[in-house]
Design a protein around this nucleic acid. Sequence first.
DNA 1: GCAGAAGTGGGCCGCCTGTTCCACTTGGCT
DNA 2: AGCCAAGTGGAACAGGCGGCCCACTTCTGC
Lengths: 230, 230
Amino acid sequence: MTSTPSDRSPGQEPEARLRADAERNRDLILAAARRLFAREGLGVSMASVAREAGVGKATLSRRFATREELINAVFADRMDAYAAAVAEALADPDPWHGFTGYIHAVCAMQAADRGFADVLTMSFPAAKALEARRTESYNGFLELIARARSSGHLRADFVPEDLVILQMANAGVIAAADDSAPDAWRRLVGHMIRSYAAPGAPIPPVPDAPAPAALYRAMVRLARTGHGSA
Amino acid sequence: MTSTPSDRSPGQEPEARLRADAERNRDLILAAARRLFAREGLGVSMASVAREAGVGKATLSRRFATREELINAVFADRMDAYAAAVAEALADPDPWHGFTGYIHAVCAMQAADRGFADVLTMSFPAAKALEARRTESYNGFLELIARARSSGHLRADFVPEDLVILQMANAGVIAAADDSAPDAWRRLVGHMIRSYAAPGAPIPPVPDAPAPAALYRAMVRLARTGHGSA
DNA sequence: GCAGAAGTGGGCCGCCTGTTCCACTTGGCT
DNA sequence: AGCCAAGTGGAACAGGCGGCCCACTTCTGC
């Protein structure tokens, strides 16, 4: 128990400090996981993460005992962006424009990172830290709703749960179509926003649907590693 | 090659007739697969299907060499219902009512059977027979669109691909929320139909969203065997 | 009934995942 | 410069999966 001189500020995280090379490997793992999660979702094998990072499987296990720990570490900063999006939307002088912009931004984040889409719909149980950030931005979203509603452009029957449902729906479109029709989700979101809008509200244009051929390709694509649900 | 007396009508399916007990086992397998697919999606292990049916793995393999064959056999009749839904909708004297009813019926079928939802979004490559039925009903759907549009109640910018996107979205909601908020999909569909409607069209009421607690439970549910996408 | 073919299920194999152990290397402190 | 603990990666292990073979049972036509 030879405690290092002082250096350990009280209330610090219980983790002992890592050696320099260990820290470097930790970063390699995080970068690799970030890449794989974004491309293929949270279901990728731990072994493939280790391979991608160029470290042994044991090293990965030592640093992140469970998949959940790894997910937590990887998406911590992305949850920052998620929370920041609400703040940005609240800063918009036009409440309705801020509202629609927020919806779009959140769905775009899902489309940009398949793993993040999984995190938001909690296909995997996320860690406490992510959950905290989520509720944090949830409060901002409530405020956003209140403002947009009193501006008269958001329908009175819109409820916060609608965003959750939209995110689940969006995740479904992304999982099924992202490979060959990467913009299909925009059509979904455009439709939903149009339905959220009160009569007379300025409605953002609903983007065109992807070409039938592209969507068809999405449907008949062979079952890749790690298919959608199930 | 002792051909049985006659009994074999020409142009019959190449399959030789099964012995009585074999036929019985085949039915047991189909029933078991129907149950498991409906509850857990198409990703269940072949071994578990055999277990559920009370037959050996070999028997399952012999009867259905690939998972795809099994899926094909299980969902053949359900595809009949799928095709029949279009005919029923076309018989509706009110084109817009027929259109919205069809959308709802199709999405309800997805919600009632998780495996069928997978089939419709082709998370797994479906067999030729299913594919044929699908395009068959697709033609009917085109007619349904044309009528609803000329009735003035369906927006001019609605395209057939919107149904595909809706099915993908619906599958996402079902995969994520079906366990604890089994009616969440109705809210999604209600919103989408409202967006499809031209100004002045009678809009079916958008069902209430599930209770926040139920949706929250859906989000934090532990990663069951075979999580959603990914 | 009886013979033989049709059908059966248990067991084995190869593959992939995730976990743990262990002999070796490397970094940090003096 | 040198020592020791922290850190490493490969190897070995357990569990689940699908595919296949093979000795045994059961149906069916005569």
